[in-house]
Simulated scan of single mutants.
Amino acid sequence: MQFMASGLRRSRTTLSSAGQAPDRPQAELMVLYADDHERLLRTAAHEATESFVCCTNKVGAPMVPALFNPAEVAGRRINDVRVYFSRYTGPTKKRHVAEHRERLHDFVDLLAIRDPQLHAKFLAWDKDHVVVSSMNWGSQSGLPDNRIDEIGLYLKGPDLATSLMKKFEALLKK
């Protein structure tokens, strides 16, 4: 992924130095390592101005500090805050999430999706920010001693989050 990121940076430089306008919108790409995820999620929770949507396959023991608390931070400022998930892991039961759903009722929509089961892991905020990752945001934490345990791509570009959310919501309706 580092090689791909370097190649994209070089091609952007080549295009701009040749004086050619690109035929498609420009996007920035950054590779996220395991311990970068939490920092970016918290930054997004504080900086989102329109929407904050996270999709994770599982919720588990770290769900509150890892995901629900940052979502609540965003939800206290903006109206569109959603967390999608499909499975419970470890000691976490449906009733545990139900308690948090009640607590976060006015701030965050906690949406359990059974069919289709979600395996996607992404974070999308506002119109332009998307992270696609291997990280189960609600059940794992990225450790700095094993940085490649979880890998993600952070993309920032015109309407990337809007496009992702349209496609995601269309798939949920099928």
Results as ranks from 00 to 15, higher is better:
residue 1 M to T: 14
residue 2 Q to N: 12
residue 2 Q to S: 06
residue 4 M to N: 07
residue 6 S to M: 12
residue 6 S to Y: 05
residue 7 G to E: 13
residue 8 L to A: 02
residue 8 L to F: 03
residue 10 R to V: 10
residue 10 R to F: 13
residue 11 S to N: 10
residue 12 R to I: 00
residue 12 R to L: 08
residue 13 T to L: 11
residue 17 S to I: 05
residue 19 G to E: 10
residue 19 G to I: 11
residue 21 A to H: 12
residue 21 A to C: 05
residue 22 P to R: 10
residue 23 D to A: 14
residue 23 D to I: 15
residue 24 R to I: 15
residue 25 P to Q: 06
residue 25 P to F: 10
residue 27 A to E: 10
residue 28 E to W: 02
residue 28 E to H: 05
residue 28 E to R: 09
residue 29 L to D: 07
residue 29 L to N: 02
residue 29 L to Y: 10
residue 30 M to D: 06
residue 34 A to L: 03
residue 35 D to T: 03
residue 39 R to G: 07
residue 43 T to N: 08
residue 45 A to F: 03
residue 47 E to P: 05
residue 51 S to K: 11
residue 51 S to G: 07
residue 52 F to E: 02
residue 57 N to Y: 15
residue 57 N to F: 10
residue 59 V to H: 00
residue 59 V to I: 12
residue 59 V to S: 01
residue 61 A to M: 06
residue 62 P to R: 05
residue 62 P to C: 11
residue 64 V to L: 01
residue 64 V to D: 13
residue 65 P to C: 14
residue 66 A to W: 00
residue 67 L to M: 09
residue 68 F to D: 04
residue 69 N to K: 09
residue 70 P to V: 08
residue 74 A to P: 00
residue 75 G to L: 03
residue 78 I to A: 07
residue 79 N to W: 00
residue 80 D to S: 11
residue 84 Y to R: 08
residue 87 R to H: 11
residue 89 T to S: 13
residue 90 G to V: 08
residue 90 G to R: 01
residue 92 T to E: 09
residue 95 R to N: 12
residue 102 E to W: 03
residue 104 L to E: 02
residue 106 D to A: 12
residue 106 D to M: 08
residue 106 D to F: 03
residue 106 D to K: 03
residue 110 L to Q: 02
residue 112 A to Y: 09
residue 112 A to H: 14
residue 114 R to M: 05
residue 115 D to I: 12
residue 115 D to S: 06
residue 117 Q to S: 11
residue 120 A to Y: 09
residue 121 K to N: 05
residue 122 F to C: 09
residue 126 D to G: 02
residue 131 V to Q: 01
residue 131 V to E: 05
residue 132 V to K: 04
residue 134 S to P: 07
residue 137 W to G: 05
residue 139 S to D: 15
residue 139 S to Y: 13
residue 140 Q to S: 15
residue 142 G to H: 10
residue 143 L to M: 11
residue 145 D to P: 00
residue 145 D to N: 13
residue 147 R to F: 14
residue 148 I to V: 08
residue 149 D to K: 14
residue 150 E to Q: 13
residue 152 G to T: 04
residue 153 L to V: 15
residue 157 G to T: 07
residue 157 G to C: 11
residue 159 D to P: 01
residue 161 A to F: 01
residue 161 A to H: 08
residue 161 A to K: 03
residue 162 T to R: 04
residue 163 S to Q: 09
residue 165 M to F: 02
residue 167 K to V: 08
residue 170 A to T: 13
residue 173 K to F: 04
residue 173 K to D: 10
residue 174 K to S: 13
residue 174 K to L: 15
residue 174 K to Y: 08
